[in-house]
C-alpha cells in the first residue's frame, strides 16, 4: 500500500476564531480544486483545542451544525433525534446513530489553522 502524501489545507488565521467559545459549533465549507465540496464543523469541547468533524449526522444524513455540544462527555448531539457522537473521534455515543462521523486532523502552525482533508 503506497503511503498517500499528506496535504494540509489552510483554513484561516487563528484570530478569526477568537470570537467563538467552547461549546460553539463553527460550520465551514471547503471547496477543493477538484470541485469537491466538504461541509465540516469545527468544535471545541474544552479550552484546549479544536476538532473537525463532517457536518453530517449518519442517522438521517442531515447537518450537525445546529447540534448541542455536551462539554462533560465531549459529545455533540444531533437535535433531530438525539443521536450523539464523540467530538474527538467521531464514534457513536448514543443511538439512533450507528455509524461514526468522519473526522479530520487539525494542526496549528504559525498561528494558522490547517486541516487534513485526505483521510
Amino acid at each position: 500500500m503506497t503511503k498517500q502524501k499528506v496535504t494540509w489545507t489552510e483554513i484561516a488565521n487563528v484570530s478569526e476564531f477568537s470570537g467563538f467559545n467552547t461549546g460553539d459549533v463553527v460550520p465551514i465549507e471547503v471547496e477543493q480544486d477538484t470541485g469537491i465540496k466538504h461541509s465540516i464543523i469545527l468544535v471545541k469541547c474544552s479550552d484546549k483545542e479544536w476538532f473537525a468533524l463532517d457536518n453530517l449526522c449518519t442517522h438521517d444524513n442531515g447537518p450537525l451544525d445546529d447540534g448541542e455540544v455536551h462539554l462533560k462527555s465531549c459529545a455533540i448531539e444531533c437535535k433531530r433525534h438525539g443521536a450523539q457522537f464523540n467530538i474527538k473521534n467521531g464514534q457513536v455515543v448514543r443511538m439512533p446513530a450507528i455509524h461514526p462521523v468522519d473526522t479530520y486532523p487539525l494542526k496549528i502552525e504559525n498561528q494558522i489553522l490547517y486541516i487534513q482533508l485526505q483521510n
Partner: peptide
C-alpha cells in the same frame, strides 16, 4: 433511554 433518547420524537 440509551435506545430511545427523549429527543427521538
Amino acid at each position: 433511554s440509551t435506545i430511545i433518547p427523549p429527543s427521538d420524537n
